[in-house]
Computed example of a mutant assay.
Amino acid sequence: MLFLRSALFNLTFYVSSAIICIAVTPAFILPRGVIVFCMRAWSRWTMWLLRVIAGTRYEVRGLENLPKEPALIASKHQSMWDTIIYAAILNDPAIVLKKELLYIPYYGWYSIKAQMVPVDRTSGASALRNLILHAKNALAQNRHLVIFPEGTRAAPGSHNPYKPGVAGLYSQLGIACVPVALNSGLYWPRRKFLRRPGTIVLEFLPPIPPGMNRKAFMAELEGRIEPATDKLLAEAGFSG
């Protein structure tokens, strides 16, 4: 049954996503807000499919920790789910993504139209300057900035080194940083076919105020995200 439900979800998700991408093509000539609306609708559609077909729900905790003014949201990254959910639960977030993703047909085009924040990890010091420039433009539009500090997905129970880009944004932008813990990798595992039933929990943790030095900030950020993530994994019955 798990295999069949996973197969049905994957088929429905990828086919419907392709249809939606093509159907929304005329929106490229319309204002950016139209694309943002369509991306939110697609994200919520995906969450609905996941719940109805795979039996995977989600719960968001700690919304009271999310400032009303734009903030830097530093999220744990375990699953493709993480890249979808923020468009569904936040109002027009600016998501930091690898520049290579912009070359993917439709996905990249929509990301450009929605003014997501690309980072070119091969261009050295200029990468941070461009990242800061795009980030400031997003903040000027009153948008939360979402970044995955690890840069890539980590399996439940493990983590990748935190990249310096998050510290660069934090120090240059002078805004609060909201750490995020989650356990999505238990239900939508990276590079796996199965979609497991249960409840994904995403938790916004208390914000880190601006003004810390880089080294202290990085230690504080990792020291908040990783234990909180381990706690969510243990709550879901994960034992390593």
Rank of each mutant, 00 (worst) to 15 (best):
I95C: 07
P67D: 13
W109T: 07
W109E: 05
S79D: 03
A54S: 14
C21F: 12
L63W: 14
S43R: 01
Y107H: 11
Q78S: 10
A23L: 15
D82P: 05
L49E: 04
D82G: 08
A18Q: 13
A71T: 09
A41Y: 09
V96A: 08
A54G: 14
D92W: 01
R57M: 05
L63M: 15
C38E: 01
A71M: 06
V36C: 05
W45D: 00
L66H: 11
F28N: 08
T25D: 03
M80L: 09
D82V: 08
G33Q: 15
K98W: 07
I85R: 00
V60R: 00
L49I: 02
I89K: 01
N91K: 13
A71F: 05
W81T: 03
A88G: 10
R51Y: 05
S16C: 13
N65E: 09
N65A: 12
S79R: 00
I29P: 06
M80R: 04
L101S: 14
I53E: 01
T56Q: 02
Y86E: 05
E64P: 04
I53Y: 02
W42D: 00
T56V: 08
W45K: 00
L90Q: 07
V96M: 11
R32L: 09
W42F: 07
D82A: 12
A94P: 04
K68R: 15
A23V: 15
D92G: 04
I85P: 00
T46V: 13
C21N: 11
K76F: 11
F13Q: 03
I89Q: 08
G55F: 01
Y86A: 02
L30P: 09
V36L: 09
I29M: 15
C21D: 07
E100H: 13
L72S: 08
F13M: 05
R51V: 00
K98T: 11
P70E: 05
V96L: 11
L102R: 04
E100C: 14
T46L: 06
W42N: 01
V96I: 15
K113E: 07
K98P: 03
G108M: 07
I73W: 03
S17W: 03
F37C: 14
I84H: 00
L30Y: 12
W48K: 12
L101M: 10
K76Y: 12
D92V: 05
Q78A: 10
C21W: 04
R61V: 03
H77P: 10
A23E: 14
A27D: 08
G55Y: 02
I85S: 00
E59Q: 11
Y58H: 14
I29L: 14
F37T: 06
M39H: 02
G33N: 12
I19K: 04
L49Q: 10
P67Q: 09
A87H: 04
G33R: 14
Y14W: 13
M39L: 15
I73T: 10
A54P: 05
E64A: 14
V36P: 00
W48N: 05
E100T: 15
G108N: 06
G108S: 10
W109Y: 10
L102E: 12
R51T: 02
L49H: 01
T46R: 01
F28C: 11
E59N: 07
Y58R: 05
D92H: 05
